[in-house]
């Protein structure tokens, strides 16, 4: 088991390495970017750049420095926010983004699994069609359409919830809903398909033939096989929720990483965008790693 863990962790390092490498060379080679020698830079910034990026050294040495810095968690100073380093900006936004993300994942799992199980157990009934129709809607309507609609309804027309701001629980409600709707839909569809497939397994028939009540068949015999595929959803879901958080934080004006990222992109704040990409890459890789390890732990057939 330990050796499998070690192997799996080792195999995710190259991916991270590639992300950092691409990041480094993109930042360096960007035409009209901050490192384009054709473009004059204010002396003060030039001195700063030199200090951080060792521009007078050969490129491989620069790369080495960059790698070292990133490993230390240092993405350099922001180009636009002169008083902040990229790491500070990420650290600032992280609590907001992680709260949103975790809540969305939790909500998606709970509601999605519940709806999926109901639909699967009532396969081809009106409830099933309703749930699947809603799921299709959830997957199809983009979050940047859903968010304005919800703001219009809950914020403007009914005045039930705030449409911007941060700090209290009520501020999280709409963003988390917008963030999780597509994921709830995805989880519901996956759960339904997975449970239907599992219930057709011969070992479920064995359990029935043994006289086990439906409740026990579901909780003991069908649960693990049904939920394992949902586990692998967590990887892509992290990526999707991060992507979604960019939109949600922009629309609801939340001080998370996503908004920094978009502001950075619009302001051509190269180091900030770069840093966020590497950070997001790291998060996604970490999540995929966790999923694989959990999978190995939960499925007795996987050999280490």
């Amino acid at each position: 088991m330990l050796s499998y863990f070690a192997k799996r962790i080792a195999s995710s390092i190259p991916t991270l390495f590639i992300i950092i490498t691409i990041a480094f060379f993109m930042i360096r080679l960007a035409p009209g970017g901050p490192f384009d020698s054709e473009r004059p830079v204010p002396a003060e910034i030039a001195a700063n750049l030199e200090k951080v990026y060792h521009l007078n050294d050969p490129l491989p040495v620069q790369y080495g420095y960059y790698l070292l810095n990133v490993l230390k968690g240092d993405f350099g100073p922001s180009f636009k926010y002169h008083d902040f380093t990229v790491s500070e900006l990420i650290a600032q936004g992280f609590p907001v983004s992680i709260q949103l993300g975790l809540l969305a994942i939790l909500l998606s799992l709970m509601i999605g699994v519940l709806l999926g199980v109901i639909a699967a157990l009532r396969q081809n009934s009106a409830i099933d069609y309703l749930v699947m129709g809603l799921a299709m809607t959830g997957i199809t309507i983009p979050n940047f359409v859903m968010a304005p609609i919800l703001i219009l309804l809950f914020g403007v027309f009914w005045g039930l919830l705030p449409t911007s701001g941060w700090g209290e629980l009520k501020h999280m409600v709409l963003p988390v809903i917008v963030l999780s709707l597509p994921q709830i839909a995805t989880v519901a569809r996956m759960t339904r398909a997975s449970l239907i497939e599992t219930l057709n397994m011969p070992y479920i028939r064995t359990a029935k033939a043994k006289g086990l009540p439906t409740r026990l068949i579901l909780s003991r015999h069908a649960s693990r096989a049904t939920l394992l595929p949902i586990l692998s959803w967590l990887g892509p879901a992290t990526a999707a929720i991060i992507t979604g958080s960019v939109v949600v934080e922009t629309i609801f004006g939340l001080p998370g990483i996503g908004r920094h990222f978009i502001n950075g992109a619009l302001n051509r704040d190269y180091t900030l965008v770069m840093g966020v990409v590497v950070f997001y890459g790291f998060l996604i890789i970490l999540m995929n790693l966790l999923v694989d390890l959990l999978y190995a732990w939960l499925d007795p057939r996987i050999k280490y």
Partner: peptide
Amino acid sequence: DVLYALPFMFFVILLTVYF
């Protein structure tokens, strides 16, 4: 597999920033 694990949406945004 390696490309799969990359957060591509962000690279696309990066590209739009640069180019």
